[in-house]
Design a protein around this nucleic acid. Structure first.
Lengths: 209, 209
DNA sequence: GAAAAATACGAACAATCATTCGCCTTTTCC
DNA sequence: GGAAAAGGCGAATGATTGTTCGTATTTTTC
């Protein structure tokens, strides 16, 4: 696995014509399929290009390196997940605890549905984990959860609230990952989601008391 | 990264003389150092052998492949962690909740102290994750936690108790990992440990109610 | 002390992969 | 319609790595 200079994971150049836009889309679709089918271990640019019906050279015209493809996939996942959680957690029509319930359930479900690709993306994390873009995503997630916590436990001091928000975020992400790798059926996913929600709600109530 | 036939991760042959026993020990020490220093990405048998002051050929006399070295490292970690948690969680002198507190604190601390190697071992998980030995370890962990839960919430039905035990296990492991990768100081580790213990205890009490 | 068993060695082999670059084709723009 | 820009191609390159195997050394056995 040769490692050369790392031009970050930013895009190399923007597609300007319709066919190149399609080409990038094809590459991303193929990348997701290769990741799910062959695993992070066998995720190679050649294989992705082949699956997409495209040449390797073309791939490198829009992605500076392999990491960039993986990061783009993860980026899209993060964006979708962030939108989902943001929508649920800021829904003032529901009590904080109910929002959490709903968030856990929806999140666990989507994680489980794409379990194979998520797992492979997790395995590939070392490739993109430490990029500035990844850090920015994590920060955005933290802020969203802290905003939620301000509504859920307004009486709690800022420092302790921040720790609690981090803990909930970690639990959501980490347990979600565990569940999606462990659970065998949607029913089982829901059982774990219910249990996790019970736990988080119990924690929330203890914090407000 | 060539992948050939996989002779599992079992030992290839047992050292019979003193010098070979020492050689295996040197290899494992070197492996831990290489993992911590260079990361899973650059963990190669050649590098390990070099660091150990030993030839690659010798390494392959006692380990069937690279995975086996990694698995052995993880195996030793698991064994130590299991002993630690078992000891704490079965200490009848403490209330269940206090055992959990102590377990979380101790576990988070040891995770954090070896953060670099743990993270790299986590990155290397795809190499050994699906071996029967790994499954056996996970099963043992589950059983220990279920035994604890029988004492902590005896009134709860078996099925729900099993789900709760799994959830606590996932939370402990997954959040511990997150914390060890995130926390910057022992004080911060303890803050997270306290918060996680609060959460788990609140859950335990809700379950008994 | 000599044959046998165990150990140790490390150059060589066989894959695999990320990435480039010279060349050709298609689209855009005037 | 033709020049220029954008897109597309894929064999070749340069590295790295996991693992083997023939040979040399050390220890054990009798």
């Amino acid at each position: 696995m040769p490692t050369r200079a790392r031009p970050s994971v930013a895009s190399r150049k923007q597609p300007k014509q319709a066919r190149s836009t399609q080409l990038v889309a094809d590459i991303l679709t193929a990348a997701a399929q290769v990741l799910a089918r062959d695993g992070a271990h066998r995720f190679t640019t050649t294989r992705v290009a082949e699956k997409a019906g495209v040449s390797v050279g073309s791939l490198y015209q829009y992605f500076p390196n392999k990491e960039a493809v993986l990061f783009r996939l993860q980026h899209d996942e993060w964006t979708a997940t962030a939108a989902l959680l943001d929508r649920i957690l800021s829904d003032a029509a529901l009590a904080p605890c109910d929002r959490l319930r709903k968030a856990v359930r929806e999140f666990f479900r989507t994680e489980w549905e794409e379990a194979r690709m998520r797992r492979a993306l997790g395995d590939a994390a070392p490739y993109y984990r430490d990029t500035p873009e990844a850090t920015r995503h994590r920060q955005a997630g933290r802020r969203a959860l802290q905003a939620f916590m301000r509504q859920a436990v307004p009486s709690l001091g800022g420092a302790r609230r921040a720790v609690a928000a981090d803990l909930i975020g970690m639990t959501l992400g980490a347990v979600g990952k565990s569940v999606s790798e462990t659970a065998a059926s949607p029913a089982q996913v829901d059982r774990y989601a219910r249990a996790a929600a019970d736990m988080l709600c119990a924690y929330l109530q203890r914090l407000s008391a």
